[in-house]
Design a protein around this nucleic acid. Structure first.
Lengths: 255, 255
DNA sequence: GTCTATAACGAGATAGAC
DNA sequence: GTCTATCTCGTTATAGAC
């Protein structure tokens, strides 16, 4: 009996995976707005009504694809962080940014599904929130390590932003200074501006050498987010090092 | 005869405007992917075949809407710049950012049309390029004024990015240092990351006081883009002022 | 209980004849 | 420009196979 249940469960998982796989194919071809259960069923050789055993409605299939995409990009961020672990917080930050961009370039339609134009008429349920937060959580972890280690530049916020900063920090990272949390959220959004411009064609005929452009820009963003010590063993101690100024390789002069 | 032609031309302009107006309504309701000439005709009480006298194909209507949207947001940027003219480059930059965000909040579906997920199967023709560049041109103008005036922080780029920077500067702003042009393009993209996150729901349950959050962040971006002198008459001259470090109100300390 | 198929609904899109 | 016949869609009801 348990073997029967196991076989059933296995079959169910397989069919569910096939549905989502075909749905992703349609996502690429027609876009999320035109995702159709009937077309998925037709392509899979099953009756459209059979799909409702797996997804009670079209929006539930969409939700499942969205959660998968968030988990996938979150996992890419975690993998990148793990690969750079031990090389210092700036290397970790850069690796995570490159990992996120790499995932986006490999999965442009899934990226569009989660970070592009919302699907008209669809409202994401609260179930998507944990997966959606995974990527940002990786960055928070890096900042936490830096904060407890060599230190973190802490920008001074205007007084009017302080209450919002405190609220955000309480929600996202109670152990980090509120100023850092606000800056991190802003920087995270800016990172996706870069990726979106590249993916959605805004950089066409503008930026050609995108790998180099991106690598340099996320290096700048590392400063924005408060990561000031490029190496685990910095040449200058916290007292004498630059607070929010240019780090190695990014000095500035006046024109 | 000329009066007849004038009346004809006037009628044509009016009908064209009505078509685009109705198309924008559908953009909001169903999304760009489902924009249908038939539905527009139905809503306007005319035969679908009549629409083809004004737009030879659906994609031409889309192109027209896209150009209008780019012109509209570009005009918003120009208006904001003009209103802040004389208050110094940082005030101009901030005003332009607020103007662009304001336009996006007022026209979310047109924003999605130009900066969101590309419409599947549609490729924008080269006719859209001049309108698409208007907003960025406003920022380039601000940077040019600052460069010829009080000065601009000029970040040092890694050598590998130099050729790309030179190429971009030749295309976009031959009279600006290449380093400034690269940084400007990156910062411009980051600005739209902030706006996109707000508009597309990524800030839901994360950022509450968005006006304040945005105002502060674009202030930070002013430094990123190289604008270091908050006022027209800076307290410190170019030789002694901060190069790329924190400006007034944004000092940093270590945690 | 679990799954799939047939058939149908109301709404909308589409193609072509007129 | 109009009309119609034929498609699509999401969704549900129902009946039967395992």
């Amino acid at each position: 009996m348990s073997s029967t249940q196991g076989a059933r469960a296995r079959a169910r998982i397989e069919v569910t995976a096939a549905i989502k796989e075909e749905a992703r194919r349609q996502l690429a071809k027609e876009g999320a707005a035109k995702l159709s259960l009937r077309a998925v069923a037709r392509e899979l050789g099953m009756a459209s009504s059979a799909l409702y055993r797996y997804f009670p409605a079209r929006d539930d299939l969409l939700t499942s694809l969205i959660i998968d995409a968030y988990d996938s990009i979150g996992e890419a961020a975690e993998t990148a962080r793990d690969a750079a672990a031990g090389a210092g917080p700036i290397a970790c930050w850069t690796a995570v940014c490159e990992g996120v961009r790499g995932w986006a370039l490999e999965h442009p339609h899934e990226y569009a599904l989660i970070y592009g134009t919302p699907v008209p008429g669809y409202v994401a349920p609260a179930t998507t929130v944990p997966s959606a937060a995974r990527g940002a959580m990786v960055v928070i972890g890096i900042l936490r390590d830096a904060h407890q280690g060599l230190g973190l530049a802490r920008p001074v916020l205007p007084a009017e932003l302080k209450p919002e900063a405190v609220r955000m920090a309480a929600d996202l990272a109670p152990d980090l200074p509120p100023e850092v949390v606000v800056t991190m959220v802003a920087t995270w959004a800016q990172l996706f501006g870069l990726i979106g411009f590249e993916l959605f064609g805004q950089f066409n005929r503008v930026v050609e050498d995108r790998d180099t452009f991106f690598r340099h820009t996320v290096g700048q963003l590392a400063h924005t987010v408060g990561l000031v010590y490029p190496q685990k063993g910095p040449a200058n101690g916290p007292a004498t090092g630059p607070a929010n100024g240019p780090a190695a390789g990014t000095a500035a002069r006046l024109s």
